[in-house]
């Protein structure tokens, strides 16, 4: 029964994310989309994938993957966020 409740919550969130895209919020649309998707992912992971019953090691495996993905995004972003700021003589101008 709990699974059905989770499924219902997922469908409600799906409706929310689809509906939110028709409300003009500028940059907040993308934020809402990602926040709702993360919530859905969390529900699937915790309940369907039984993460809440798993030991520390499995939780760590799940978290490490996300942390490493964040490293890929974050450190690359040190480049993309500052590329236009100032130039060495040899570096490309955007």
């Amino acid at each position: 029964m709990r699974y059905v409740a989770v499924w219902a919550a997922l469908l409600v969130l799906l409706a929310a994310t689809a509906g939110s895209s028709y409300i003009p919020m500028g940059g907040w649309n993308a934020f809402a989309n990602m926040a709702i998707s993360s919530l859905k992912a969390l529900l699937v992971a915790l309940f369907f994938m039984q993460l809440r019953h798993e030991g520390a090691l499995v939780r760590l495996a799940a978290v490490v993957a996300l942390v490493w993905l964040a490293l890929l995004f974050g450190l690359s972003w040190t480049d993309y966020s500052t590329r236009g700021a100032s130039h060495a003589p040899w570096s490309a101008r955007p």
Partner: peptide
Amino acid sequence: VSGQSLYA
């Protein structure tokens, strides 16, 4: 020296 930002 690839064109990456200096700050990076």
